[in-house]
């Protein structure tokens, strides 16, 4: 193992074991429902709604530290690879799977890096909305999640609905304001043979989870 990789490993452990857990459990505070539905091992996909940078960190803190090495959040290359430092941190400490959001050739396979991670047996964290968007509003789910499910019909996709992080740290803000965060975990979905029907099923699953909670207005 290279010195850089060893340091990255130590940093990763300190970051997730101490910093992230302190922020997520003490500063914020989680209300997790149906924790038993989380995948115990890879390959698996966690698919959640996206409001904040903290989404990834909260999802990663739900699983025990011993699977930390297997957790791979999918992240937009154009955003996280803007500069060297961010790119190094995203790759070595967070462990992201970088993907491009735009094809450069018509038949480019944008999901290839995600497919590789699943083939290795990783637990992939995926945000089907594709971007954080407006805080605490669900955007349209893109077809990526259905494509992945179709390519890996044996891999369970666990839908997760989160509320509160868009209030705590929305897009474009740097100041973290504490709020309790609701994390509702759904039953794993299985591939039903059709992309459009699958996407619809996923959307219904997220909406059912959202309907379980009480969310005060945030206007």
């Amino acid at each position: 193992m290279s010195t850089e990789a060893r340091w990255a490993g130590i940093l990763r452990w300190i970051f997730f074991g101490i910093v992230v857990r302190f922020v997520v459990l003490i500063v914020l505070g989680l209300n997790v429902r149906h924790r038993e539905r989380l995948p115990q091992k890879g390959p698996a996909i966690l698919a959640a709604n996206h409001n904040s940078h903290l989404d990834t960190l909260v999802l990663m803190s739900l699983l025990p530290l011993r699977v930390l090495g297997r957790l791979r959040p999918v992240a937009a290359m154009d955003y996280f690879f803007r500069n060297r430092w961010l790119a190094w941190f995203a790759t070595h400490v967070i462990g992201v799977v970088p993907i491009k959001r735009q094809r450069s050739t018509p038949d480019e396979d944008l999901l290839a890096p995600v497919a590789e991670a699943l083939e290795r047996g990783d637990i992939v964290i995926f945000f089907p909305e594709g971007s954080r968007g407006e805080p605490e509003r669900l955007a349209e789910f893109k077809s990526g999640i259905a494509r992945l499910a179709g390519r890996f019909p044996q891999v369970p996709v666990t839908p997760v609905f989160m509320h509160g992080l868009g209030k705590a740290l929305p897009r474009g803000e740097w100041l973290l304001v504490p709020f309790f965060v609701d994390v509702f975990i759904g039953e794993p979905l299985t591939w039903n043979g059709d992309r459009r029907a699958y996407l619809n099923e996923f959307k219904c699953a997220i909406e059912r989870l959202a309907a379980e909670g009480h969310f005060p207005p945030w206007e």
């Binding site: 803000e173 005060p216 945030w218």
Partner: peptide
């Protein structure tokens, strides 16, 4: 924190 998470708040007041 529990109170502020429970009541309606304004985005402008973050």
């Amino acid at each position: 924190k529990e109170y502020l998470s429970l009541i309606p708040t304004r985005r402008a007041d973050r």
